[in-house]
């Protein structure tokens, strides 16, 4: 009982902070997304709502922005593109990240900490810089073209920059550590004797891998996919710098609506819908984890 009271006191400051700078602002986005485009030109001043004004408030709500979102195929396409690209990037990151994480756990114990540090280190250096590094590599006449032409694999420049492939490369590159770490964490904790027991019971290496290692690594794989997919959907910097004008991902659309078109209600409506897309996989994952918990 006493510990709970102290917990409440400790929670007070972060709670107030998040209420003021996270919850309240988001409610304002929600309100803004339901505003009339014409009325809500910046600078926008909120109408503070009293209890008596709720009716008036409800009457003033306008779903115009959402209707626009639904009717203009640009937005729906941007959502779908974002999901497709984030999904593909997640899959590629898993295909690269799992072997990497697995190899680290198999490395000599004394190397493991260093190897993990090497994987984390790029994550600590600026995201923007890492994306920028790829521009120099992928641009026409860039490093990649030169290397490929020199070794004779291709004679033409690949023109990768400003394509969806470039966005995929950038995403996999930027988010790879998020995939490796959770998988490594699970694999590292795994009792090695389980594999030995499976071997002792006659399972071949591939069977052992498929029936023991993969199922036990599932929580890590799920967490890794989640950590790559969710931020991937809302990504702005990577499609903006590496993608062409046709690679319209929803995060980039929001940015443009806001900074270029100055349509705040529409940008807010995009934000609200985007959040729905982010929350959905999270709920699924939670539900999955919850079922696991009750099963245990």
């Amino acid at each position: 009982m006493r510990t709970d009271r102290r917990a409440r006191i400790a929670a007070l400051a972060p709670l107030l902070w998040l209420a003021a700078f996270f919850v309240l602002p988001f409610l304002m986005v929600l309100r803004m997304s339901l505003s009339d485009t014409a009325q809500a030109v910046p600078p926008y001043a909120p109408h503070w709502i009293g209890f008596g004004q709720i009716r008036e408030f409800l009457a003033g709500l306008d779903v115009e922005a959402f209707r626009l979102l639904w009717e203009d195929s640009l937005y729906l396409n941007a959502f779908l593109t974002a999901i497709r690209i984030a999904g593909t990037a997640t899959l590629i990151a898993l295909l690269i990240g799992f072997p990497l994480a697995y190899a680290i756990t198999r490395a000599p114990k004394s190397w493991q900490n260093l190897l993990v540090l090497l994987v984390i280190l790029p994550f600590w250096t600026s995201f923007l810089i890492r994306v920028y590094a790829w521009i120099a590599i992928l641009r026409p006449e860039g490093v990649l073209d030169r290397v490929l032409i020199t070794i004779g694999l291709t004679s033409e420049p690949l023109r990768l920059l400003n394509t969806e492939t470039a966005v995929l490369i950038g995403m996999v590159y930027s988010y790879l550590p998020f995939m490796v770490l959770p998988i490594y964490a699970v694999l590292e904790k795994m009792d090695r004797s389980l594999i030995e027991a499976a071997a002792d019971l006659g399972a071949k290496p591939l069977t052992r891998f498929l029936t023991i290692t993969i199922p036990l690594a599932k929580p890590g794989i799920l967490a890794g996919c989640f950590l790559v997919f969710v931020p991937g959907i809302g990504e702005f910097v990577i499609p903006d710098l590496l993608g062409g004008s046709e690679t319209l991902m929803i995060g980039r659309v929001l940015w443009t609506e806001f900074f270029s078109n100055r349509d705040w209600p529409l940008a807010s409506a995009v934000a609200v819908s985007l959040l729905a897309f982010v929350i959905l996989p999270m709920m699924l994952l939670r539900g999955f984890a919850g079922r696991k918990e009750t099963a245990r």
């Binding site: 700078f21 602002p25 986005v29 929001l254 807010s268 934000a271 985007l274």
Partner: peptide, 15 residues
Amino acid sequence: MVMPEVITGLSLLLL
């Protein structure tokens, strides 16, 4: 942590 940055940014600006 999971909120897309564009949304966090937009909402803070509105505030």
